[in-house]
């Protein structure tokens, strides 16, 4: 579990994660706000369906992919948290990288 030692959650940034309201602090990314709210599972893998959560927090591992406002494959660790976002766990991948 993570706790905040700086910054405060703001009543102005509340988004939904699979229907659950998540309160974020200014400067939070979707990933940091979710982790602070105790969520560790962000997606499931395409082949075995195993749960995954953020690994690198710096945009390189793509383990934090979620669906935001209907758009899949968004990196939660690079996406600033905004009020009223609709965030959902993602199953598998959509857009593919190069081959």
């Amino acid at each position: 579990m993570l706790r905040r030692i700086a910054g405060r959650i703001s009543p102005d940034i509340v988004f939904e994660f699979d229907g659950r309201p998540i309160h974020a602090a200014p400067g939070d990314t979707v990933a940091s706000a979710l982790l602070a709210a105790g969520e560790t599972i962000f997606r499931s893998t395409p082949s075995s369906g195993k749960p995954r959560g953020p690994f690198c927090m710096m945009g390189v591992c793509f383990e934090c992919l979620v669906e935001i406002d209907g758009v899949t494959d968004r990196q939660a660790c690079l996406t600033p948290a905004r009020d009223k976002m609709q965030v959902r766990k993602q199953r598998g991948f959509d857009a593919t990288a190069s081959s």
Partner: peptide, 13 residues
């Protein structure tokens, strides 16, 4: 590095 980023950027411990 991820834990350090949570601390540096988001004040999360």
């Amino acid at each position: 590095g991820a834990l350090q980023i949570l601390l540096k950027a988001h004040g999360l411990l």
